[in-house]
Design a binder for these strands. Sequence first.
DNA 1: TGAAATGTTGGGGCG
DNA 2: ACGCCCCAACATTTC
Length: 476
Amino acid sequence: MTVLYWFQNDLRLYDNPVLSAAATVTDDLIPVFILDDTITRPLGGAQRWWLHHSLTALINKLKKQGITLLLRKGNTQQILIELVQKYNVTAIYCHRSYEPAMLQYQQALQRYFAAQEIIMHLFKGYLLTEPSIVKNKSGNYFKVFTPYWKFVSTLITPTQLLPTPNKLSQRSKIVSESLASWQLLPTHPDWSHGFAIWQAGEDAGQQVLQHFIEHGLQNYAEDRDRPDRLGTSRLSPYLHFGEISVRQVWQVIKQAEIAVPGLQKGAQAFLRQLIWREFSYYLLWHFPLFYQKNFRAEFDKFPWLNNQSHLRAWQQGLTGYPIVDAGMRELWATGYLHNRVRMIVASFLTKHLLIHWCEGEKWFWDTLVDADLANNSAGWQWVAGSGADAAPYFRIFNPTLQGEKFDPNGEYVRKWVPELANLPNKYIHDPSQAPRDILTAAGIELGHSYPLPIVNHKIARETALKSYQACRKTNK
DNA sequence: TGAAATGTTGGGGCG
DNA sequence: ACGCCCCAACATTTC
């Protein structure tokens, strides 16, 4: 019998329970990946780049076992029906999605095929916990992170990680589209040369995890806030595309925590971040329009501004606030942005420029290699103040102070805003306060070689606080 | 996973 | 010696 394995955001062979299950029931496995931009949001540009390289890695890995990955572009349902008929498929295996629209689509397919006596297996595995079963004591779903984290971390029990199946077998003759024909890589212009810091695919993901445990975990609790250091795990794109199993990440970090004294603090801080990912999906599950609708309805009244030139200055890293500009340029160049700086630039867009968080969310969606519907929405709503357990609206980052605190020597700014490189530390996070002779000595002419601040911090802060009054609940 | 405004305290300069 | 004031340095409150 022939079995279809439908690859989605699970582009790996190791610890892939669904693939392992499929492999045990068939000697004719057809792995398929379908590029379909109609079910959920179309992929952003950075994600398309990543996907190209991830699929390349997967294709090569499967090829070593004599397996061809079948690539198709178009309407998923039509393609699956066509493949089922063409190859006389008896069962379909795939991971269950936790994006509401995609899950509905999968379940509709499952019913369709069931009517034709073809079983479509939808396995869990993308998350550590099932969003539908996690409830607080009063039977409602959690809306505050800390109690969620406390509860959920007790639910996760270790399981045996599954080895890479090494006896995959394929008898059918596969006709696939070529990956190149999908044109996932940018050509004119090719903006991707800064993406060379990344290596997609599950082997690279394993190396990144290993490297993080050996070098990053110990000081993670402090260094994860330091954009001038390589303190974060950088696992997010691998987790998003399922190139690494979240179950593996959780267990390996847990093991390291127990085995090595001194890792507990770092390990706990990191596991907490993994649970933020769970929490994001959990919220999306219970609030399916999370990515476009304020979680807290009172924010529907917020008087957002629609200033296109401000939006463009933010996107291009030309706001006149060095830490913001450094972040936006890092994002554009590498498809990545340090988490602390994500918060700073997001706070700046929503609170200094008063631009709707959806604009920022869309920009991140297009530019991040780890763009993820649940995490991206949750992060933006958290910063904007409209989300669940969000930062209070009055928490407005002072970009200068944030820079001084988390990039104390200005190394991060100098890397990404080279025109400021010769400024002394004292002014690196606030060039507009530097005396004229110091600016001249550093080769800077504000307004020309580097912009003046597009808004004044003090005034912007006061305006934001006033604007937020509009969406405070009326009956206090 | 703030920052600014406001309040309090205590050491030291000074008349 | 004493009180007064100044003002860091912290602490608390407020947005």
